[in-house]
């Protein structure tokens, strides 16, 4: 064996260490890149839109006149849609999670449903739009009412909610259920009085996060034919509606015709992002405050 030339080795070692340091900064800059874009995006939207937000903008009706346009209708539309999405996804999502985690026998059927759910999570949102168009709008004749939009979005976010609720249920330690069974409680009593209450905080956190996904979703609504310009406010789940992301979409498209519309779109984005920020803060608050330590 040749003797190692220490001098050569040291100089090579130095080069290797230098190379490591250079790449470390490249990796760091890469990580920073996404965050810089995020910062640019937020600053851009704020500088462009924040000045347009005032009480008239928030409470006014739509108008072709950029100076007078308001987003109350879109805000109400979003709220109404959420009033459909929340109960529908919570009941179906938590119910499915409870079934899969606590009732279904480990086996082919259960793994079939779970595979199916993870596949559904990967289906593009626009395809859900077509499902909604065919089933809710046409077959059930709901047209472009709040209910059609709400149900479509519910199906879209359901896989996310189910998976997070499953994780929440799995995190409840088995010894709590044991204690309940040992008192002579039945399975449903144990689930309803012990397991669900213990998992509640995590389930709520997960459902708020999936709700914020639904709030920002646009593609399925475009397929349902949600109108670009709608003056009346929705007053129930059977009314036609528009929603914040739809308003952003139309104003962005038309900004090539009327330049101010871009500012309106930016202002609406600010409102949407604030809404999402508040929802996420609530989710984090619930997670930190109410999550049980076992």
């Amino acid at each position: 064996m040749e003797k190692l030339d220490t001098l050569k080795l040291t100089s090579r070692m130095n080069a290797r260490v230098r190379k490591n340091a250079i790449w470390k900064s490249i990796f760091f800059l890469s990580t920073l890149f996404g965050l810089i874009v995020l910062a640019v995006l937020i600053i851009r939207v704020l500088t462009q839109g924040a000045g347009w937000i005032d009480i008239n903008f928030l409470t006014g009706r739509l108008s072709t006149d950029a100076e007078r346009a308001g987003i109350m209708g879109a805000l109400l539309g979003t709220v109404w849609v959420m009033l459909v999405v929340i109960p529908v996804t919570l009941i179906i999502g938590v119910g499915t999670a409870v079934y899969l985690e606590l009732y279904a026998k480990r086996g082919k059927f259960q793994s079939f449903i779970e595979t199916n759910i993870s596949n559904l999570a990967g289906v593009p949102s626009i395809v859900y739009g077509l499902l909604g168009l065919t089933v809710f709008s046409r077959l059930m004749d709901l047209g472009n009412a709040v209910l059609a939009g709400g149900l479509t979005l519910s199906l879209l976010v359901l896989p996310i909610l189910i998976v997070s609720a499953q994780e929440a249920l799995r995190a409840v330690p088995g010894h709590l259920a044991e204690a309940s069974y040992a008192m002579g409680a039945t399975k449903w009593q144990t689930i309803r009085r012990v397991i669900l209450p213990a998992a509640l905080a995590s389930i709520l956190t997960g459902s708020i996060l999936s709700l914020s996904r639904a709030i920002g979703e646009t593609a399925p609504l475009t397929v349902l034919g949600i109108p670009a310009f709608l003056l009346p406010f929705p007053e129930g789940i059977f009314d036609t509606f528009t929603a914040l992301p739809m308003q952003i979409y139309y104003w962005t498209l038309d900004s090539s015709l009327v330049a101010e519309y871009a500012n309106l779109a930016a202002a609406t984005i600010v409102v949407l992002l604030v809404l999402l920020f508040v929802l996420n803060s609530i989710a984090i608050f619930i997670r930190n405050k109410f999550q049980q330590r076992y």
Binding site: E178, A179, A198, Q292
Partner: peptide, 10 residues
């Protein structure tokens, strides 16, 4: 039944 590890409900 009383268990190995105390398991009160939360």
């Amino acid at each position: 039944m009383v268990f190995q590890k105390a398991n009160p409900f939360p």
